[in-house]
Design a protein around this nucleic acid. Structure first.
Length: 259
DNA sequence: ATGGTAGGCTCCCTA
């Protein structure tokens, strides 16, 4: 049976919960990774998701950030945050489903290249690389998914000249993404669609969605054995057109059976 | 004209 894995920055699971339930019912993914749940763990809607057929693994905090993995089957070998527990921001969690490892990230936005949040973003990406290198050692079949807050290259930006080398597009961020890919990961959407220009995020401001001014910053990075199984990678822009939408669209990958 | 909107332990901060 093919396996469908999705990622979605929901910008508050509390507000977006009806849309998440509707999307799960319509798309029926095996696994859905969420970012920006903005929920403390005590308020995670475990029972409602169980009624919809999904188990919940979640790592939240008040007000900001928050990641979760919803899955039809039980997650194994779960972990959240850095192994040494030093980062106070809830941006990372991982779980295994048989041989497939799923690492879910909400990469810091960085705000602007001259913000103090920018070096924090670069440092966070360097730590992520070290973490994923260890994960790959144990689980060669790995998906690194989430909101990367990095547009990989000019094809992923509606107006690459206007965005220039600003936040989400700066050379250091793109180099950090390149260092992740150097571990043996592949941008699954771009591997299957070499030239297509599609976006996964549109700013709430300036009527960006109506004008289709977006960036592709929500990514699924697949290790080589999983890329070989990739049958489809879909960005569901329809979800962004819904009433009271998240500013991000869900992205999903369908993996065929192992040969 | 450096704008605009959305969310949250909301009167500021993050995105």
């Amino acid at each position: 049976m093919p396996v469908k894995v999705a990622t979605w920055n929901v910008n508050s699971l509390n507000v977006r919960f009806p849309q998440v339930l509707e999307w799960l019912a319509g798309e029926r993914p095996d696994i859905l990774c969420l970012q920006e749940t903005k929920l403390v763990d005590a308020r995670f809607p475990v029972a409602e998701l169980a009624a919809a057929g999904y188990q919940s693994f979640y790592h939240g905090q008040p007000t900001y950030n928050g990641v979760a993995i919803l899955s039809r089957r039980a997650p194994e070998a779960v972990c959240c945050g850095w192994p040494d527990g030093t980062d106070g921001q809830a941006r990372l969690c991982a779980a295994s489903f048989g041989a497939v490892r799923v690492v879910n990230v909400y990469v810091p936005n960085g705000q602007s290249v001259d913000s103090d949040k920018y070096p924090y973003k670069l440092q966070w990406l360097a730590r992520l690389r070290a973490f994923v290198a260890e994960e790959l050692r144990r689980w060669p079949q790995l998906l690194l998914v989430g909101d990367f807050n990095i547009a990989p290259d000019a094809r992923d930006v509606y107006d690459p000249v206007a965005w220039g080398e600003g936040i989400l597009c700066s050379p250091a961020e793109r180099a950090a993404l390149g260092h992740l890919l150097d571990l043996g990961l592949h941008d699954a959407y771009r591997s299957l669609h070499p030239e297509t220009r599609e976006w996964s995020w549109w700013d709430y401001r300036a009527a960006a969605f109506r004008r289709n001014q977006g960036l592709r910053i929500d990514l699924i990075l697949a290790s080589t054995p999983l890329l070989a199984r990739a049958q489809a990678v879909v960005i569901d822009g329809g979800a962004r057109a819904a009433a009271r939408p998240s500013d991000h669209a869900p992205v999903s990958i369908t993996l065929g059976d192992e040969v």
